[in-house]
């Protein structure tokens, strides 16, 4: 329905018959108009930069070519060879950083999930002050990441922090521990990760528990199942689809986490807390070797794609067999 601009009537003619108005696009075009804006921004910020990142990983893009990066020479797989070379410092550091990140994800995801399911199950029963407790539990998740990290930084401070003060006061430690240096930095970072993320597990699992009908539990109780049997035999299987998504989301968030180490260590990250996003960030911006940095990022993306597809395949098959 094309109307030449000049001949368009001043008042849009509303057809008396048919439900469509004069300016309304047809049913076939409308969905594309609706997704158009979202698609445009996705292309500009996600898709094109990702494809550019992949192509940069094949370029010798260092500080000499930064101003005219389109003219950087083609390097083939050279950047990947450096990133994967386990004989060299760079390759070994990257591998160690991936290992640390996996350990961080494993600890934070598993403990957050355990706290979440524990809290959600306990809050499911009609305990007094239930909504007040839930409100408090959710605050750490609502807090901006940087304030959450900074209060822990203060609490873990060697001289004026709460943790050393309590440890010395109770005799559980000597009160002379540097929590943000050396291997302790990993523990501190994981603790902060858990404090921030377990409320999200709680929120999601509480929503999941609410969708389980109470009749199921009543039936189980009539059959004589105790609380633990109800939990393992009923609650966990019914939560399987929720858990499948929740664990994946938590894993991706922690694996790609940048905000926590960035605020906690402000540029001087101890080796034990060298998460891979910080590692790539620092190696790109300190050496200005963006070709190598991109090769590392592409490797990460491929790794995450493989892990995620395997995870979805395995968990979906198990769900079908169950």
């Amino acid at each position: 329905m094309v109307t030449p601009v000049g001949t368009r009537p001043a008042v849009p003619a509303v057809p008396r018959t048919g439900r469509r108005r004069g300016w309304s696009p047809s049913r076939r075009v409308l969905p594309y108009l609706l997704i158009g804006p979202a698609l445009l921004f996705e292309l500009l910020v996600h898709v094109i930069p990702m494809l550019t990142g992949v192509s940069i990983s094949f370029l010798q893009l260092n500080q000499f070519y930064l101003r005219r990066w389109l003219q950087a020479p083609f390097a083939g797989l050279a950047n990947y060879r450096i990133a994967f070379d386990l004989q060299s410092e760079i390759g070994l550091d990257l591998l160690r950083s991936v290992g640390i990140t996996l350990a961080y994800s494993a600890v934070v995801v598993s403990v957050s999930w355990l706290f979440g399911i524990f809290g959600a199950t306990l809050l499911q029963s009609s305990v007094r002050g239930r909504s007040l407790l839930r409100t408090f539990f959710l605050i750490p998740y609502a807090l901006p990441v940087f304030t959450a990290v900074i209060v822990w930084k203060f609490m873990l401070d060697h001289d004026s922090g709460l943790v050393n003060h309590v440890l010395a006061g109770t005799g559980l430690g000597d009160g002379n521990t540097f929590w943000l240096l050396g291997d302790n930095a990993f523990i501190s970072m994981a603790l902060i990760g858990i404090w921030r993320l377990w409320p999200f597990a709680l929120l999601t699992l509480m929503a999941g528990l609410q969708s389980i009908p109470t009749e199921v539990y009543e039936a189980a109780e009539v059959d004589g199942a105790n609380r633990w049997q109800q939990f393992t035999g009923l609650t966990l299987p019914m939560l399987r689809p929720v858990n499948q998504v929740l664990v994946l989301v938590l894993f991706l968030w922690t694996f790609n986490d940048f905000n926590v180490p960035f605020t906690l260590f402000a540029g001087s990250t101890p080796a034990s807390a060298d998460l891979v996003s910080v590692h790539v960030y620092q190696s790109s911006f300190i050496t200005w070797n963006f070709g190598l940095g991109s090769a590392m990022s592409v490797t990460l993306l491929v790794f995450l794609l493989v892990v995620t597809s395997l995870y979805i395949a395995v968990t979906s098959r198990r769900a079908r067999n169950a």
Partner: peptide
């Protein structure tokens, strides 16, 4: 609506959640 490319768009949108931010930070800046 059902339209051609609907599933593709849905899956593509979801899979961007997997991208490490660091991967498109540098290209985006450039």
């Amino acid at each position: 609506y059902t339209f051609r490319g609907r599933e593709l768009f849905r899956m593509a949108v979801l899979s961007t959640q997997m991208f490490p931010g660091i991967l498109f930070l540098l290209p985006l800046y450039l």
